[in-house]
């Protein structure tokens, strides 16, 4: 433990706080804080997944919310048919089936859109990922079977053996465990040889290609992993809110995810968690004061870009030097 850096201490503290306080509050009748923490942790998983490609891979995806939506609809649609009939092939409350569906759909969507988007660079990539997510948004908006814009209510949560997602404590436990797993997975990927190439290509693609790396393949693989993780976050979010609508995939949601990653500090392990915490708290506090909370939020975003280098983690590390 002696050679732990400041940032690993911070990470440890954050994760302990997240493990201890929400259950404590729930047990003392403060379910509200548990709700907040569950949302934070689930969005944290999405932010961690985005950080893999944005922070470490330099792929500025402005369409990550699409994966959240796809994951959530993978819960909602089978559940909807199981309740109301129709589409027998997928009608089911079975959590394992829904989870598999969420993961496969997110992965396939990532593979197809990634294969096209990654042929482009820079601004094109930003806009194309945005456009593809908006395509998913409009697709679900146009599906009257699933109430289009008005969205779906999930009457029955995903059913798993051993875990009961109707219990806030168990849902939080699953989400928290998933967040830890996601962070470890990203850390492992980043430190592996694969991750070295990914980070090298972010910094200097030409050099990596000249060394013999097919960087397109590396990027696409990372993109699919990230999209799939984010789809999993959507699966959890659907089970948490029990209400899903195309709005979950709107491009402004993707913008919020990006904000979390950059605010917390891209290409750091803890950054996305810090970012999503600040976002959730700010949303909660500001929106309780005023319906115009997007105004201070927007100003903060501008300020973040103009004045804060490296996000909150940058500030933390900067003081250490």
């Amino acid at each position: 433990m002696k050679n732990m850096t400041k940032t690993s201490w911070a990470t440890l503290i954050c994760m302990v706080v997240l493990a201890v306080f929400p259950p404590y509050f729930l047990l003392h009748g403060q379910a509200f804080y548990m709700d907040l923490a569950t949302r934070l942790v689930i969005l944290g998983i999405a932010a961690v997944s985005l950080n893999l490609i944005l922070g470490y891979g330099g792929m500025v995806s402005f369409g990550h919310a699409a994966f959240i939506g796809l994951g959530a609809y993978a819960v909602g649609i089978p559940s909807h048919h199981a309740t109301w009939g129709g589409f027998d092939l997928i009608a089911s409350y079975n959590g394992l089936f829904q989870l598999a569906l969420a993961i496969v759909i997110a992965a396939v969507f990532a593979l197809i859109t990634g294969a096209i988007s990654l042929r482009t660079k820079g601004v094109y990539f930003i806009m194309i990922t945005m456009a593809f997510s908006q395509m998913a948004f409009f697709l679900f908006q146009s599906l009257d079977v699933y109430n289009g814009d008005d969205g779906l209510t999930i009457d029955v949560r995903s059913e798993f053996p051993f875990i009961n997602l109707d219990s806030p404590m168990q849902l939080y436990g699953l989400s928290y465990g998933s967040l830890v797993a996601a962070m470890l997975l990203v850390k492992t990927i980043v430190n592996s040889r694969f991750g070295m190439v990914l980070q090298g290509a972010k910094d200097n693609n030409e050099r990596m290609v000249t060394l013999g790396y097919n960087t397109y393949f590396y990027r696409l693989t990372a993109y699919v992993i990230s999209g799939t993780m984010c789809g999993y976050a959507g699966f959890l979010l659907g089970n948490f809110t029990t209400f899903i609508s195309p709005d979950m995939m709107h491009w402004t949601r993707s913008g919020e995810l990006m904000f979390m990653v950059i605010l917390g500090g891209a290409s750091t392990a803890l950054g996305p968690i810090l970012g999503s915490s600040v976002f959730i708290l700010m949303e909660e506090i500001l929106s309780s004061f005023t319906i115009f909370w997007h105004l201070p939020f927007g100003l903060m975003l501008i300020g973040l870009v103009l004045f804060v280098r490296g996000g909150l983690m940058g500030l933390l590390k900067g003081k250490g030097k």
């Binding site: 070295m196 980070q199 090298g200 910094d203 200097n204 030409e206 050099r207 990596m208 290609v209 000249t210 060394l211 013999g212 790396y213 097919n214 960087t215």
Partner: peptide, 21 residues
């Protein structure tokens, strides 16, 4: 990348390294 695998390497006139590593 395939040529590099076949045994051609190149150095750059303008230094091209992964500066952040």
């Amino acid at each position: 990348y395939a040529r590099a695998k076949l045994g051609i390497t190149r150095s750059f006139q303008i230094t091209s390294l992964v500066m952040g590593m």
